[in-house]
Design a protein around this nucleic acid. Structure first.
Lengths: 253, 253
DNA sequence: ACTAAAATTCAATACCTGTCAAATTAAAAA
DNA sequence: TTTTTAATTTGACAGGTATTGAATTTTAGT
């Protein structure tokens, strides 16, 4: 009610956007990663973080990192909604390719207003996901939960439907596009070489091998819920990798 | 070659845009009018003008006014092209109304890049005029000449086709829209009350009376070229009101 | 030509976002 | 625990755009 998005400028919105995405894993966003994502020096980011904290948009613990306040989250989700709606629009209406839209959406997301956002949403048919599969926050600022899991955290043999290619790297996206690895594609995980090695996937047409780093950004909705997966020893896998550092533990119990 | 548009920021582009349009009548744009158009104080505009002059984008004569350098013109025309293409796009593709588009185009014109401009041009079919009828500069920076003349500078009885409603006042535009006074409408000038009084116009359907200030923004392409008009005394009218202050002289000789 | 009014510029200052280099704090290694 | 390394913050400063209010120049009126 107090701080409204119209009164904030590009820089602020981009910071909030970045912080939101970097802290989605539960960990606060660090000064360094924020600076990296925004292309400024850590000093610059540090100064700006303090300013945002003064404005009660972020919760800052010096030397530890930043999280958004509820205010900050609201604004970040608004910007993220605009970004993702724009991406849909840019592909659907303007004929851009999916690896081109992020940069344009980034430039536009901070200058469009509510009227424009609403118009885009209407024209594109109120989509719930962006072209890469990220969930679009609703108009009233809710980010719906989805059952997406990392392909590489599924057991070998698992199959499902790609829901999201979770990267903003245009080159990677172009490559994924060429391979047909995009939302709605069916995939089966064939093998993962140990210690971050190559990942082999099959689609109805192909067998594809990717580096681990690349494969890691593929999110799927598995045919069987994660709960049903059973490890060789007969124990169910942990549902989320969130609370622990890695998705897999290679040592028993 | 030297100063490229990508390296310039919003403020600079908006200034160049404003100066271009204010100096289109041949007179340099004054500090005051620039400030007024941009919503800043004259002091602010003055400072900025000096900065633009340092960058060789404007030709500044202190206390007299500013004109764009060829560099400045190039950039202004680029921005104006983007603005007007965006206006077409906003109506044609996004369904906005013609009195709404100026503000959105203004916000967007400085953030889109060449690729985006080209895409819009293509989608909208490379229009030559914006929805209000202003000529769109070509991609290589040429503003085509058109035979538009002020309706109120035509002799009573003249008729023609509206080519441009030359204002960015949203309320006026909405009103003109309601009256059907927009590009392509046929009109005949019925009367002009002297000393800036009411102007009466007829369309195929209506007879409309407007205040002089409002009527002044209507530009038409007359059925007969201006050269053919003959004043009561038998001498042809001046072709352009440019070199003199007013379109009309009420005193003889 | 002289004065009053209007337009313009200047001076001092502010805000925002950034930089670099130095100081500080936290985390990791020995 | 001490030392080394990495991450973060601070300080000093810059660039860009604005403000207000005072000084100046131009224009218009008598």
């Amino acid at each position: 009610m107090d701080t409204e998005i119209q009164s904030l400028n590009d820089a602020t919105l981009h910071y909030l956007d970045a912080i939101y995405r970097l802290s989605q894993d539960g960990q606060p966003a660090t000064t360094n990663t924020i600076a990296g994502k925004l292309g400024v020096t850590p000093s610059g980011a540090s100064i700006m973080l303090k300013r945002l904290a003064d404005r009660k948009l972020v919760q800052l613990t010096p030397y530890k990192g930043a999280t958004l306040t509820p205010q900050g989250v609201r604004i970040a989700l608004r910007t993220i909604r605009r970004h993702r709606l724009l991406e849909v629009f840019l592909i659907q209406v303007m004929g851009f390719q999916w690896h081109e839209v992020d940069k344009h959406a980034h430039a536009l997301e901070t200058v469009i207003d509510q009227e424009f956002e609403d118009r885009i949403a209407e024209i594109t048919g109120n989509p719930t996901r962006c072209p890469h599969g990220h969930v679009i926050p609703t108009r009233d600022g809710v980010l719906p939960r989805v059952p997406d899991v990392k392909l590489v955290s599924c057991p070998v043999g698992a199959s499902g439907v790609i829901r999201c290619i979770d990267t903003d790297n245009a080159e990677w996206l172009e490559y994924f596009g060429q391979l047909g690895l995009m939302p709605d594609a069916r995939v089966t995980l064939k093998s993962i070489a140990p210690y971050g090695g190559a990942v082999t996937i099959s689609t109805p047409h192909d067998s594809i091998t990717l580096g681990f780093e690349l494969a890691e950004v593929i999110l799927i909705e598995p045919d069987k819920p994660a709960d049903a997966w059973v490890s060789p020893a007969g124990r169910p896998h942990a549902r989320h990798a969130r609370t622990r550092r890695a998705g897999f533990r290679h040592k028993g119990s």
